[in-house]
């Protein structure tokens, strides 16, 4: 079964001071991942952002896997980041809205992840305000569409409504279909009523919402 997972972290809602404490970061990353951080150019990625990048990656992997296994429990330290490839282009500004495009790989942190004996791949983007990750089980993101939006009202109801509207606008634009509907499965993930074979994932944190969906190769 095809799947997708994504996650967004609003950095303003995280505490750098708390993140640097071993008691905190040891619940997200393991010793091997700390070694992985030491092996990369730390001028481009602070330790706090690495910890939240790891969180975002692991949450997106969990969401990818839990779509097909609703009883799966999320335990960040049981999901392992094996490798990380830094983006070729740095300091890419992210505006109020951003969507997937040809720059994806050049601006992304690309990681290979292991979980329960399987490999997963993630692409993440980071700026001063957010970290956003998308997970796939193939190292191929060509058919994956994603979007991020900055919203004014961070109440849950508005986050939820905003991400639906943002996604519907994109889907209607893609499929030239004005009557698409998004429903929520009892397992918790969203589906496009008229296109149930397109896996869709939502995420929100504070003033940021994001979607990701995987098109079929012929779409």
């Amino acid at each position: 079964m095809r799947s997708i997972g994504n996650d967004i972290v609003a950095l303003a809602l995280t505490s750098a001071e708390r993140t640097r404490k071993e008691k905190f970061f040891s619940k997200i990353i393991c010793k091997q991942e700390i070694e992985l951080f030491k092996s990369i150019d730390s001028s481009s990625l602070s330790f706090e952002n690495f910890v939240w990048l790891a969180w975002s990656i692991k949450e997106s992997v969990y969401k990818f896997c839990s779509r097909n296994n609703s009883s799966l429990l999320f335990s960040p330290t049981k999901i392992f980041i094996n490798s990380i490839q830094l983006p070729a282009k740095k300091n890419i500004p992210i505006g109020r809205e951003m969507e997937s495009g040809s720059l994806d790989r050049a601006i992304s942190y690309c990681c290979e992840v292991s979980f329960q004996g399987s490999k997963y791949f993630t692409q993440s983007i980071i700026n001063n305000e957010l970290i956003f990750s998308v997970c796939n089980n193939k190292n191929d993101f060509d058919n994956i569409c994603w979007g991020i939006k900055n919203i004014h009202d961070d109440r849950y109801e508005n986050q939820s409504a905003s991400v639906r509207l943002f996604t519907l606008n994109k889907l209607q634009d893609l499929f030239k279909h004005s009557d698409l509907k998004i429903e929520k499965k009892t397992a918790g993930y969203p589906v496009i009523k008229q296109r149930p074979n397109i896996p869709l994932s939502f995420t929100h944190h504070g003033c940021f919402v994001g979607y990701a969906f995987a098109l079929n190769s012929n779409e």
């Binding site: 809602l13 708390r18 619940k27 944190h205 504070g206």
Partner: peptide, 9 residues
């Protein structure tokens, strides 16, 4: 409606 990012906190 707690965000999952707060579960560690």
């Amino acid at each position: 409606k707690i965000n999952s990012a707060n579960l560690i906190d």
